[in-house]
Lab assay of single mutants.
Amino acid sequence: IEKFKLLAEKVEEIVAKNARAEIDYSDAPDEFRDPLMDTLMTDPVRLPSGTVMDRSIILRHLLNSPTDPFNRQMLTESMLEPVPELKEQIQAWMREKQSSDH
């Protein structure tokens, strides 16, 4: 029984630690959010139409349809242009958020 109590305490400790580690990014500025999924972008790319999306989301879309989801023009992965300035701004915002939450 004592071992179970210790195990339960350890589990509670881990759960509390994980809860502290989770950071809420739901208040991200609109320009940091993917327009299709409304999630925080981690690897922004510009489509030929000028729309900026997260790379993982547009690549997932391209698996089903080789088109720009906003104007239905033909689109391939090679046409995606990285946006390193925005990526750095997002990373800086995330770092600031992490340091203010801890």
Rank of each mutant, 00 (worst) to 15 (best):
V15M: 09
S65F: 04
Q98K: 14
K5E: 09
A92D: 13
E96T: 15
D43I: 00
T42S: 11
V15A: 11
E96M: 01
D38N: 03
S26D: 15
L6F: 11
K3Q: 04
V15I: 13
D27A: 05
M94T: 14
S78G: 13
I58S: 01
P48S: 02
T67A: 01
Q98Y: 06
E88Q: 09
S49G: 04
E85A: 08
K17I: 09
K17N: 12
Q73H: 02
D43A: 03
N64Y: 15
S65C: 01
I90N: 00
P82V: 01
D101H: 06
E31V: 09
M79S: 01
L7H: 09
R72Q: 01
A19D: 07
F32C: 01
A92E: 06
L36Q: 00
A92V: 11
L36W: 00
R20L: 14
R55S: 03
E31D: 11
E2N: 14
L47A: 09
L47M: 04
H102R: 11
E22Y: 12
M41V: 02
L7P: 07
I14V: 10
Q98V: 15
K97Y: 13
V15Q: 15
A16G: 10
P84Q: 07
Y25F: 12
M41T: 00
E81S: 14
T67C: 05
L7R: 09
E22R: 07
D38Y: 15
D27E: 12
T67Y: 08
T51A: 08
I57V: 12
S78A: 10
D38S: 02
S56F: 03
V83I: 15
H102N: 12
E96A: 11
I58M: 03
M79K: 06
N18M: 06
S49F: 15
K97D: 12
E77M: 07
F70Y: 15
E12A: 08
W93K: 02
L7Y: 10
N71V: 02
S78E: 12
H61R: 00
I90T: 03
D24T: 02
E2D: 14
Q91A: 03
S100N: 11
D43C: 04
E77K: 06
R55L: 02
E77V: 05
D30K: 15
